[in-house]
């Protein structure tokens, strides 16, 4: 659990209910540390590329994983993913698409843009909570991140 405290999660989500549910689920599984929440694609870009109010964000402290909703105000999830992959700094940053949609087209486009996972939010909270737990466990604990400076 030591690792979890050090490594953070970026949650990109506009629905306040979903934010709360997600945070609750993380909390339930003691993965609540360092969850940065942004409400739209623009904010997410600011955060990732240290612009606007995130200009002072310290370097070398990128999140371990980005949980990305697709339907977002201003810049939508796929567009955000596209920009991330185009930028060398966020090129390899793990991105998990977490959405209500199960449209094949959305899944296909997500993987085309090198999303690391595509997860559909279940309606049942127990299931949802389990999904969130697995995600946190996998990306924060099991997965070996890219070495620094690579």
């Amino acid at each position: 659990m030591d690792k979890i405290t050090k490594r953070s999660i970026l949650l990109v989500e506009d629905n306040p209910d979903d934010i709360e549910l997600t945070l609750h689920a993380l909390e339930e599984h003691h993965i609540a540390n360092q969850v940065e929440v942004v409400r739209d694609g623009e904010q997410a870009l600011d955060f990732l590329f240290r612009k606007g109010k995130y200009a002072d964000r310290p370097a070398n402290e990128d999140p371990a994983v980005v949980l990305l909703d697709l339907k977002l105000p201003k810049i939508d999830g796929l567009e955000l993913l596209k920009r991330m992959r185009e930028n060398p700094n966020t090129q390899y940053l793990p991105v998990v698409i977490l959405t209500s949609s199960r449209e094949e087209q959305d899944i296909l486009n997500g993987y085309k843009l090198h999303a690391n996972s595509f997860i559909r939010k279940p309606v049942n909270f127990e299931q949802f909570s389990e999904v969130v737990r697995n995600l946190g466990l996998y990306w924060l604990v099991i997965n070996e991140p890219l070495p620094k400076g690579e």
């Binding site: 209910d17 709360e20 609750h24 209500s100 949609s101 199960r102 449209e103 939010k121 279940p122 309606v123």
Partner: peptide, 21 residues
Amino acid sequence: SYSVSHDLRAPLRSIDGFSRF
């Protein structure tokens, strides 16, 4: 159907989630 899949399911999730809380 796209909106249905995305937009209708979200409130359901909230209903279920918060009921659970």
